[in-house]
Simulated assay, not measured.
Amino acid sequence: MNHDVEPLPATMRAAIWEGVGRPLVLEEVPVPRPLDREVLIKVVACGVCHTDLHLLKGEVPFPAPAVLGHEVSGIVVELGGGLDDSGLEIGMPVVGAFIMPCGTCRQCRRGRDDLCPVFFEQNRVHGNLLDGTSRLRRADGSRISMYSMSGLAEYAVVPVAALAPLPPEVPLEEAAILGCAVFTAYGAASKGGLTSDDSVAVVAVGGVGSSIIQVAAGLGASPIIAVDVDDDKLEAARALGADIVVNSTREDALAAIRAAVPGGVDVSFEALGRPETFELAVASLAEGGRMVAVGIAAGAATAAVPITPVVRRGQSIVGSFGARTREELPRVVALAADGGVDLRRLVTRRFSLDRAQEAFAALAEGRISGRAVITP
């Protein structure tokens, strides 16, 4: 491990979001400093995710000005207090998960980091870290909200509970997507009880959907059916492990799924958050099937689900926002280290920090297959 970390600069570049309809703009701001049980990392890469795009479009409320970016990899450059038991060292490569659990609430004590109310209240509602304050300020001292660890910057403060070390066999830049795309996929597979005996449909194969396909293939599920509207994404999905691909603009997706697996699939995953894809994922289930809802919807979107078939056929619908950080982030890293997910294949495009707005425009227009990353 290289402990020769350069001295911290006084300022850094960050992509500032001023609110709905406003573009991301690079700005020099003071480098944030970690407090107790926090770590400062030099960001190597930050993933380009639809969840950030929802904020940019005003589909999910969040206080501006803010620095977005919740999927990061980087190098530890400073440790806050109380970290003697963390195992982290200066110079260590790490990945950060977007769910940053407090570790002490009732849900965290039960091992349900993914339900931590402190994280959701402080970070997702108010744009703070877990102690109720933001680490980010402008040069004039005015506050900047943080979305998770605010990875669209050169440095980021991350609670230690949201970090995992990276072994040398995991590529550092591509490892950023472990913290959301693959982390979310792993959590979805876990909540769906996915096994090697299951047939699978993945509806929408962007960054998260592509990761679900790899995780499902790694677990031996078969057949794996990928549904999308984009041929390039579907071909990428086939390369990642999908056995059958369906373009729903040219054929009846439900009929295609049932033709491939008579009676329906054992587990379906919905990774976009639109009513029509949600309804398709439920309709594709076999008796006793499990539908895992992963995609975040715009605003108060709802889906129409027939009640009686769900009841009579013993089906279940479960939501999955992410995995359990402290327990499952290390498992996600181990999966990547063992070759269970091919990060280099999943990461398809790279943008510099000054092109962050361009990256999200490409995502909004459906021009990114797999996952893109921004490299400060």
Rank of each mutant, 00 (worst) to 15 (best):
M1P: 04
M1Q: 03
A14R: 06
R22I: 02
R22V: 04
V29K: 03
D36A: 14
E38D: 14
L40R: 10
K42S: 13
H50N: 13
D52P: 11
H54R: 12
L55A: 09
K57F: 03
V60C: 10
A66D: 08
L68Q: 03
S73A: 08
S73V: 00
V76N: 04
D84A: 15
G91H: 05
G96D: 03
A97M: 07
P101R: 06
T104V: 14
C105I: 05
R106Q: 12
Q107H: 14
P117R: 07
P117W: 07
F120V: 06
G127I: 04
T133H: 12
R135C: 09
R135N: 08
D140I: 10
S142G: 08
S142N: 06
I144D: 05
Y155S: 13
P159F: 07
L172Q: 04
E174M: 04
E174C: 01
A175G: 01
L178I: 09
L178D: 12
C180D: 15
T184V: 10
A185K: 14
A189R: 06
S190K: 14
G193F: 04
D197V: 02
D198T: 03
A201L: 06
V202C: 05
V202D: 02
A204T: 04
G207A: 09
A217G: 01
L219H: 02
G220K: 00
A221P: 01
A221I: 01
A236T: 01
A236Q: 03
A237L: 03
T249N: 15
R250P: 00
E251W: 01
D252K: 08
L254P: 12
A259K: 15
V261Q: 02
G264S: 12
F269R: 11
E270Q: 14
L272A: 15
E276L: 12
E279A: 14
A283S: 15
I296R: 12
I296W: 15
G299L: 11
T302H: 10
A304M: 13
T308R: 14
S316R: 13
R324Q: 15
R326Q: 10
V333L: 02
G340Y: 11
L343G: 11
R344M: 00
R345H: 07
R349Q: 15
F351V: 07
Q357S: 11
E358Y: 00
A359T: 10
A359Q: 09
G366T: 11
R367L: 15
